[in-house]
């Protein structure tokens, strides 16, 4: 009975490791499927949630949110019965992650779950780090992209994450004291990381 949160630098192998752990332990793997859960509760499309998540906290989204009244948004988005913005997104996110954790047996990838569950008695928080060049190599190998495309994706994703945590008022996500285990993926491979986490859980 545990809940594992995996935080990582993009390209450090967090998704692959999370899936391996979930499969081995028979846990639920929570990644982008949380978008669908939020969309269902907010009664909006997953695309709308994705947009809010992507733009959360940016200057553009703040201006738009402050300028456009909800009834005008409703007129534009006639097919949508609900409504979601930065704040409502965050409400659902913390509720759904808390709910998943209290139901136990889950591996949750990112989305500030290490903060939301920081004092959860059954939670283990893992952080994966990796040098930029190795992250580029990992993404290139696993996602079939060119070198230039990969570098752009990694840079964009690094910026997006900084922005995401900045929106949450958190800039210390790489602070080791937040985690039970920090794994340097420059020195160990996915299989070793998997073994180390399994050992941590058993102990």
């Amino acid at each position: 009975m545990a809940v594992i949160t995996i935080s990582r630098q993009y390209g450090a192998g967090g998704k692959t490791l999370g899936k391996m752990l979930a499969k081995e332990l028979g846990y639920t793997f929570v990644d982008s499927n949380i978008i669908k859960m939020i969309a269902k509760e907010a009664n909006v499309s997953p695309e709308w949630v994705r947009t809010v998540e992507k733009d959360a906290g940016t200057r553009f989204s703040k201006i738009i949110t402050s300028m456009i009244a909800k009834h005008l948004v409703d007129q534009v988005l006639k097919g949508e019965k609900g409504y979601i913005d930065d704040k409502i997104y965050l409400d659902y996110l913390v509720l759904i992650i808390s709910k998943i954790a209290d139901e136990n047996n889950a591996v949750i990838l990112g989305r500030g779950s290490q903060y939301i569950l920081d004092d959860h008695p059954d939670a283990f928080h893992i952080f994966l780090i990796r040098e930029l060049e190795n992250r580029v190599k990992f993404i290139k190998e696993n996602y079939n992209l060119t070198d230039q495309q990969t570098r752009q994706v990694v840079n964009n994703e690094d910026k997006r994450r900084l922005n995401y945590f900045s929106r949450l008022g958190k800039k210390d996500f790489d602070n080791p004291s937040l985690y039970h285990m920090v794994l340097n993926m420059n020195y160990i491979d996915i299989n070793k990381a998997f073994q180390l986490i399994c050992t941590l859980l058993k102990d």
Partner: peptide, 14 residues
């Protein structure tokens, strides 16, 4: 307890 955890998280997020 889930509700209270979510409240605490929102407070932690500013």
């Amino acid at each position: 307890k889930t509700f209270l955890r979510s409240q605490k998280a929102l407070t932690e997020f500013g």
